[in-house]
Simulated assay, not measured.
Amino acid sequence: MDNGIKTSMGYNYYTYDDKRLINEKYWELSADKTPITVQYDYNADGLLSKMSVQKDTLYKTVQYQYLAKKVSKIHVETNATSGLSREFPILVYLGNLKKFPIKYDTEYSYDKNGNLIEWKNFLNEEPQSFYSYSLQYY
């Protein structure tokens, strides 16, 4: 099923397959002639497994891995220094990087109750940030 929605920037187009969004086309700026296209893929459990984003020669691929239906890792590859951030923002400064494409990973860990207790961000396999939670159960 195709669906077009008019916004202040023009039209956004969405394609669904059995209630799942599978393709999207939108424009970042009203004067922009080239749309951004996004293809969504799902795993056997119906969870989002991959987003492929394209605009001209710029791309961003976002892959999701799951453990017990919880996100365990998000892997991003892109050649875009800016833009294409709506699908998955990269939370590190890319301005000084000289080599593209880049790889950006976020790894998530959960406790035995399924609560998020830490996540780590990596840029080109180098650690960038680490966050942890300490939970007490009564």
Rank of each mutant, 00 (worst) to 15 (best):
V76D: 14
L47T: 05
Y13P: 00
T7C: 04
Y16S: 02
L29V: 00
K73H: 10
K99G: 03
Y133V: 07
V76T: 15
L84R: 03
G10Y: 06
N23M: 04
K120C: 04
T15C: 07
L97Y: 08
Y110V: 04
L91H: 11
S49F: 12
K73D: 03
T7Q: 07
T61S: 06
N121D: 15
H75D: 13
E87H: 09
I102N: 06
N113V: 00
D45C: 06
Y16K: 02
G95F: 05
T34P: 05
L47P: 06
Y110H: 11
K55H: 01
E77A: 11
Y138R: 14
A31V: 06
N43M: 00
E77P: 00
L21P: 06
K70W: 02
Y11V: 03
V76C: 13
K103L: 11
T57Y: 11
Q63A: 15
P35A: 02
D32Y: 00
Y131Q: 13
L58I: 00
K50E: 10
S72W: 11
F88T: 05
N43T: 05
Q65E: 14
Y137C: 10
A44H: 12
Y14T: 01
M1F: 06
S49T: 12
Y42M: 10
I36K: 04
H75Y: 14
Y40L: 03
S134Y: 14
T78E: 02
S8T: 10
Q54H: 07
L123R: 00
V62K: 00
Q63K: 12
R20G: 02
